[in-house]
Computed example of a mutant assay.
Amino acid sequence: MSAFGLEIVSELAEIRVKASRGIRQSLQPFDDKLALQEALQRAERAYFKALEQLRFEAHYKNLRSVFEEQRRFAQSFSGVVRAWNQMTELAQKDLASEFEWFSAVDELGQNEELLAVRPHQPVEVLVAKLDRIVRVMHKTADKCAEAELVIPAGKKKDRLDQKTTSALRAFAYELKLHWDEVMRKSIGLDFAKRFAFSVAHEFVFKAIASLTTDYTKLDVARIMRSLQSANYDPNKFRLAPPDNIGVFKYLRPQLVFPARGKG
């Protein structure tokens, strides 16, 4: 359900804006409340889509530390493999027998009757099983340790005072598109000379406040100024998928970002 019902939209439509240049006239530009509601709801969808993008970015950035953990584990496990291979036959048999016992307790609990009647395997079979576990774990650790994440470079910074503002940027950008359309119709093609989008900062601040309290008026003002560029491209602030994402989808799907659906 949208946060921008007719009551909220009506309140926002009452906000007046003053020209920044020339005659300091003020006006209420959003007389078409239905169109305003549609614009606000588009901005709302853009906001939540941007939040999903942030989760996407955080997920893949976190994978780098995950791979580092796995590399350290693989290095440590190599020592386990060497120690296992250097064991005497008797030591391996004893360890395998104890492994079978603790595995049975883990599965059956402290039920002495079930433990007593459980099937027993020859110790040579137990050693072979434990050897297989060690070898497979070693292979797994080495394989995971080889993983690399190739994230395309060139993403512009999108932070203000250690705060990520991409969701606010996406929200404001959608409202700017509506603002430009409305002002062009009511003021003319040169509307930006007197009514640049920045003069609507109070409107945008109160609108975003319906979704979150994460941003200050200063955050909103800064973002709105950055949107004034004629060649502004919101995609420049979005992290592209890793170049080798296809490999993960095929070989290690558990590492792929679990998208929550379309925005």
Rank of each mutant, 00 (worst) to 15 (best):
A3M: 10
G5L: 02
L6I: 03
E11H: 01
I15H: 09
S20W: 12
I23Y: 14
Q25K: 12
D32R: 09
K33L: 07
L34A: 14
L34M: 10
A35W: 03
L36Q: 08
Q37M: 02
R45I: 04
A46I: 09
K49N: 15
L51M: 11
F56K: 14
F56S: 10
H59V: 02
Y60C: 04
S65I: 06
S65Y: 06
F67P: 01
E69R: 10
Q70G: 03
A74R: 11
S78N: 12
W84L: 05
N85P: 01
N85C: 03
Q86G: 09
L90Y: 03
K93D: 00
L95Q: 02
E98D: 03
E100R: 11
A104N: 03
D106R: 06
N111E: 09
E113P: 02
V123A: 08
E124N: 06
V127Y: 01
A128N: 01
R135Q: 14
V136Q: 13
V136E: 14
V136T: 12
M137F: 01
K139T: 15
T140Q: 14
A141Y: 15
A147R: 15
E148A: 06
D158S: 13
T164S: 08
T164C: 09
A170C: 11
Y173K: 09
Y173N: 14
E174W: 04
H178N: 09
S186K: 15
I187C: 10
A192S: 07
V199F: 01
F203H: 00
F205D: 10
F205L: 10
I208W: 09
A209L: 05
S210L: 02
T213C: 04
L218R: 13
L218I: 10
A221M: 14
R222K: 12
N231C: 00
D233P: 01
P242N: 05
D243E: 05
L251S: 05
L251C: 04
R252M: 04
P253Q: 08
Q254T: 04
Q254N: 10
L255C: 05
G263E: 08
